[in-house]
Simulated assay, not measured.
Amino acid sequence: MMTAVNTDALIAVWQRLLADPRKSWVLFEHGTCVVLTAPAGDLAVQAGEILAEFGPVSAGSPAGDFSVIDLKDAEGWVVTGHHNDVLTYVAPDEPHEQSHIVVGLFGRSKRHQDGTELRVVHVEDKRAPANPA
């Protein structure tokens, strides 16, 4: 069961974790962030296309795989999957147990939910502004 999501808190965590001033990223409702290494056009659309392909979980495929990263700059964990730029934040109060397997499965389920619902809650556009002629 998913807990209620505090969007402002999620944005603050990702801003702290992705402090690189050149990184554009898009945050989805349940905590999944897509980092755009080649941002172009509408960033929400671009991230949505990536997450639609790499977010949903298929058991027995690479889409079911995950890794758990213990965070140094925030409380909680980041769960990765089969796309290096799709990351899901799990807060310390979310999983019922804090073992890596439980945290990973919880984060994977959040990624699946974001990958099927595709509800953008924040866009961090770090592209350099165009120079006026």
Rank of each mutant, 00 (worst) to 15 (best):
A12H: 01
L17D: 07
H122M: 10
T37K: 15
A44C: 06
G60E: 08
A59Q: 11
D8R: 04
V13I: 01
C33F: 13
D20C: 01
P92L: 08
F54M: 09
Q98L: 06
S61C: 13
P39E: 05
E29Q: 15
A38D: 13
Q15E: 10
H100K: 15
V26Y: 02
P95K: 05
P129R: 07
L17V: 05
T88D: 10
L43H: 03
E97F: 13
A74K: 00
V90F: 04
H112Q: 05
I11M: 13
G31H: 06
G81Q: 04
K72T: 05
V102L: 05
R22M: 03
T116A: 04
V90W: 09
A128M: 13
I11W: 03
T7W: 00
H112E: 07
R119M: 08
K72L: 02
D73I: 04
R119Y: 06
E75P: 05
H122E: 07
V13Y: 01
Y89A: 01
Q98P: 01
E75D: 15
R22W: 10
S109H: 12
V26C: 04
F106Y: 03
L17Q: 12
H82Q: 08
M1R: 13
D85F: 12
W14V: 02
G31S: 05
C33L: 14
G76E: 06
F66C: 11
T32S: 07
A63E: 13
P132C: 02
A59M: 06
L10G: 00
P129H: 09
R22T: 04
D125Q: 09
M2H: 10
S61E: 12
V90Y: 09
A74D: 09
V45M: 03
V103Y: 00
R108V: 03
F66Q: 01
F66W: 15
A130I: 14
G76N: 11
A40W: 02
G104E: 10
L27M: 01
T32K: 14
I69N: 15
V45T: 15
I69H: 14
V90A: 11
A91Y: 07
I69T: 14
S67P: 00
D42K: 13
I50P: 03
I69L: 10
K126A: 12
K110D: 02
A40F: 08
P129I: 01
V121E: 03
L36D: 06
G60W: 09
S58W: 11
S58P: 02
M2K: 03
A19L: 08
A52V: 02
S61M: 10
M1I: 07
R119D: 03
G76P: 07
G31K: 06
V57L: 06
L51T: 02
H122L: 08
T32Q: 11
T7M: 00
K72F: 00
E97H: 13
